[in-house]
């Protein structure tokens, strides 16, 4: 189980690295599908079928919208090497050096906090469900819903769902405003 998940996550990492380095934006968007569909398989293996159904459709709709954007703009990526050539002599590009150092600082900082936080976590597969114990034991009597995820989503934590719907409507209003071509006089 763990080995299979590790292989799939490695495949997702490889797909995302190719996504960030592809020269053609269309192939980058398609390679991004490796990450998304790998995530779907991970959800299925981790016994989360609700998420797998939602993720696989969301992935396809994201792909449609991204291809629509690329169709009406350009497909070519901006290329930039790590070195530049001036009068036959190669110099290290100062910008990429600065980016490299910044990225290294970020990695070290995030690694520090990651190690500190995962030391307090349970190892994989041994989850002490402190919060969800009530949901698991009395969820069916309290909500009457056989699917505990729906019970948590719409009864115990309905405020979160309301906030999610609000974010969705705000995003739609923002998109309609940004994509309006002619301004109102």
């Amino acid at each position: 189980m763990e080995a299979l998940l590790a292989v799939i996550i490695l495949l997702m990492i490889a797909g995302s690295i190719y996504t960030l380095h592809a020269r053609d934006l269309l192939s980058a968007v398609i390679a991004y599908g490796i990450t998304g569909f790998g995530l779907v398989i991970c959800f299925l293996l981790l016994k989360a079928p609700d998420l797998a159904i939602a993720q696989i459709v969301v992935e396809i709709i994201t792909l449609i919208i991204m291809i629509a954007v690329i169709r009406i703009s350009t497909r070519e990526d901006l290329t930039e090497g790590a070195t530049i050539k001036v009068e036959g002599v190669r110099y290290v590009n100062l910008r990429s050096a600065v980016y490299f150092v910044t990225g290294l600082l970020f990695v070290v900082g995030f690694l520090y906090f990651f190690v500190k936080s995962t030391l307090n976590l349970d190892p994989f597969g041994v989850h002490s469900a402190r919060m969800a114990q009530v949901y698991l034991e009395q969820g069916v009597e309290l909500t009457g819903s056989a699917n505990l995820v729906a019970g948590v989503l719409f009864d115990f934590r309905a405020y979160d769902t309301l906030g999610e719907a609000t974010i969705l409507i705000t995003a739609v209003v923002g998109i309609l405003t940004v994509l309006r071509l002619k301004g109102r006089k």
């Binding site: 079928p49 609700d50 159904i53 459709v57 009457g144």
Partner: peptide, 17 residues
């Protein structure tokens, strides 16, 4: 949605699709 996997979010995305 309250009996089997799925629900409003997953089904809504399928209908939009």
């Amino acid at each position: 949605g309250h009996l089997s996997p799925g629900g409003g979010f997953a089904g809504g995305t399928i209908i939009a699709g």
